[in-house]
Each structure stands twice: as structure tokens, then as C-alpha cells.
Amino acid sequence: AGPAGHAQCGGAAAAGGADCAVRTAAASVPRRRTCPRDLTTGAEGGAVLRPVPDAELELSPEEQRVLERKLKKEQRKEERQRLREAGLAAHHPPARRSGAELALDYLCAWAQKHKNWRFQKTRQTWLLLHMYDRDKVPDEHFSTMLAYLEGLQGRARELTVQKAEALMRELDEEDPDPLLPGRVQRIRQVLQLLS
């Protein structure tokens, strides 16, 4: 088929006609509405967005998630506005707790056999990463940390031993630092416990 055979695509396709077939197939598919929402008038007279019923528009799962996020964001914004108008909103959002606080609380809850305690990989990872630092894991928590390490299993246990051995080799090669004796002692305790 030559260029004359491609009248519907303007004769611009190659002699094989593949480009033309793709364009004509795409042109025959009805276009889908991209905006899944409608405007209505709200109680205060302003425009309020509302979801379009499924009968009017079929949404893909991704479009549905986007729509739900937007609606939730609108609801939070409206709630903040109502609180602000009522004078109940705090001027500053509540402070988030640091990773250190959350990890130490996790460790204490484990030590007390708290009924709500459950394993949290993020907290364990933070503890394993910072357990040699006295500023992040104070001495009063380190004995609990050692008890926690006794129950460490599998890959986490292997990696903890490997890291402790690597840190010990690294510290042996460096010049002595007055801040290191506590760190060296902690590394030795961990190696002694897990080896």
C-alpha cells in the first residue's frame, strides 16, 4: 500500500501502513472525560466540589484514589476553617515526637511486657543503628537494649554482629578519642552477648 492508500491519515504514513493503523484505531476509541468532579453550590454560597456518580463516569483505580485524596484534603481544609472561625484552632500544629523518643518508648514497652507492645521494624532498625551512641540511647536504656538484643534472630542478628565487628576494627585502627571508651565498651558488650 502506497501513500495513496492512506487517505484517512493524509498520506503521511510509511509504505507499511503501521502508523496509519495505529492512528485510526486510536481515533475510533471514544475519549474519556478527564475531570471526575462537578461543581455545585455549597451552604455558604461558594462552589463545592462533589464526585460525579459512577453511572456518569467510570474511574480507573488510580483516578479513584486521586479523587478520594482530593476530597479528604477538602474536608480537612473545611474542618480547619470551622475551627479557626470558632477560635478553637491551635496556632501551632502539635509537635511530632522524634524517632529517638519513639524508639526508646518502644524499647521500654518491650521491657515492661506491655500488652500493647508489638514488633516494629522501624523502631528496631533505629535502635540497632544508634545503640552505640550514648546521646541517643542513654546508659539507663542500654541494659534494656542488651536484653532486647538477646532475642534478636536471623538476619538482624547476623548484621548486628557484622557491624559491631567492623566498628571494632575501625576503632582499633584510629587514634584514641576521649569520647570512644563508652562506645568501645558498648561494642564489646554487644559482641560478647551475640557471639
Results as ranks from 00 to 15, higher is better:
D133K: 14
E85M: 06
A7C: 13
H91S: 07
A7D: 15
E68S: 10
A14D: 10
L149Q: 02
R96K: 12
A12G: 15
F142R: 10
C9R: 03
R65W: 14
R183C: 01
D19H: 01
L180V: 03
A14W: 14
L104S: 01
L146E: 07
R23D: 14
G99I: 03
R33M: 13
A166Q: 15
D54Q: 06
R31K: 10
C9A: 11
G45T: 08
G11N: 05
V161A: 15
R23A: 02
G151V: 12
P53S: 06
A25Q: 10
A12F: 14
L149M: 15
D172N: 01
W117S: 00
T160W: 06
D139L: 13
A156Q: 07
T125G: 08
A103W: 06
D135S: 15
A26Q: 08
D172W: 00
L57R: 00
Q185M: 07
L88N: 07
H130D: 02
S143F: 12
E101D: 11
L193C: 07
V190T: 15
L167V: 06
P51F: 00
T122D: 13
P61W: 03
K77M: 05
E78D: 03
W126K: 03
A21G: 05
S143E: 11
R32H: 00
L146M: 14
T160G: 10
W117I: 01
E44Q: 11
R69N: 13
C35Q: 02
G99R: 11
A25V: 06
L128K: 00
V52N: 02
D19Q: 08
A27F: 08
S143N: 05
L171N: 06
P176M: 15
D105E: 11
E165T: 07
L152G: 00
P51C: 01
A43L: 13
W117H: 02
Q124M: 10
V161S: 03
P53Y: 03
Q8I: 03
L146N: 06
E44A: 00
Q75V: 10
F142N: 04
L129A: 07
R76V: 11
P181K: 05
E165V: 05
R188I: 09
E101F: 04
A100S: 09
P181N: 02
D177R: 04
G16L: 14
V161D: 10
A47Y: 12
V22K: 11
A90K: 15
Y148P: 00
A90W: 07
E68Q: 09
A156T: 12
A13K: 03
R186D: 11
S98P: 00
A18T: 07
D135C: 09
A15Y: 13
A13D: 14
K70P: 05
W110S: 02
G99A: 04
C20G: 03
K136L: 08
G45W: 03
N116K: 09
D133R: 15
A156P: 04
T34G: 13
R118P: 02
E165K: 12
R76P: 00
K121I: 15
